[in-house]
Design a protein around this nucleic acid. Structure first.
Lengths: 181, 181
DNA sequence: GTCTATAAAAAGATAGAC
DNA sequence: GTCTATCTTTTTATAGAC
């Protein structure tokens, strides 16, 4: 809990980056060690197995979700607008963690799957007081999921099909008009 | 083009099923051959490499999307309602193909990624005449993506976070009220 | 068209030196 | 705390019999 070594964090960063840009298949322990600038043995000192490496990014996600839920509850522009806007990849630590853990989940990790479900539940709790009914809550969460989904695919491909700028503002206004309690 | 051998199709079915239920990591050529009830050599006669196997499911997806777009355009309940309703996994061939190709995309396949983007574009073309504006189109597509995303995760996990039955009807009504042109 | 046998590479993991 | 060397298992792919 105290102060994780610098090398440990850089290994975790490298693993996360590989998951994001090349997928779970390419995020091998060998590739992670190379990307982090350590040897395989050095990596294995910090993370004794591939599961431990996955647990590392999942744990990091959990902590970031805690901060995010606080930010949602106290957002000046309102929880719904803030939530949707922050669902568009800003390349911040939370977005990166979500996409990385999504890759693990789709590669078959039960722990990653559970973490994503828990994140979803915590979002629902934070948003529920601010929407009209369950259908409105479903709508907001599904639009957010859609935004993440499209960011999670793509990787580094050319045209991003996700609305940005004025288009995103229009989408948020449309959703807010439909869900406000 | 004429009449693909029966064994070829059963190999493709097995590969798709493995992708859906266990992820790209588990969908090895060995496991696929076993699940299809053929030997590794038998599989390799039909699909000379793992890329060829992936190309097979991608090609099948393309054909199914063509049918789906026709169904969307001519749906009696209206294109938007039909589109959203069919976004909830019904375990039909199209849903299965989408989820399988999504797994490949998230595992790093560029071809799978391109196929999903093309599918999206064809959906947008079919829906655009039936919604108010671009924000409305974005909303419909993102809700659909959200529904697929949640089905694509999960696999066989306990609680499905996707609205069903009356909750789905309420969601569709809410979206239709917001997007109708 | 389908099989067995096997090669070649890559992955996860261990042991022990420094 | 980090390295090199090595082992085991898994995965992809080839060769050739039937």
């Amino acid at each position: 809990m105290s102060r994780p070594p610098r090398a440990r964090d850089s290994v975790l960063d490298a693993f996360e980056q590989l998951l994001i840009s090349d997928g779970a298949r390419a995020a091998t322990m060998d590739a992670t060690a190379r990307a982090a600038g350590v040897s395989k043995g050095g990596l294995l000192y910090h993370f004794a197995s591939k599961d431990a490496l996955a647990a590392g990014v999942i744990e990091r996600l959990s902590a970031l979700v805690t901060d995010d839920v606080d930010a949602i509850r106290t957002a000046p522009e309102g929880p719904v607008a803030f939530f949707l806007r922050s669902s568009v990849m800003a390349d911040d630590p939370l977005d990166r963690a979500i996409i990385a853990v999504s890759r693990l989940a789709q590669a078959g990790s039960a722990a990653a799957n559970a973490a994503l479900r828990e994140m979803r539940e915590r979002w629902e709790e934070a948003l529920r007081p601010h929407v009209r009914d369950q259908a409105a809550l479903d709508l907001v969460i599904l639009v957010s999921d859609g935004l993440y989904f499209n960011n999670a695919l793509g990787g580094d491909t050319a045209t991003a099909p996700v609305p940005e700028g004025a288009a995103l503002d229009a989408l948020i206004a449309l959703v807010e008009g439909s869900v406000r309690s």
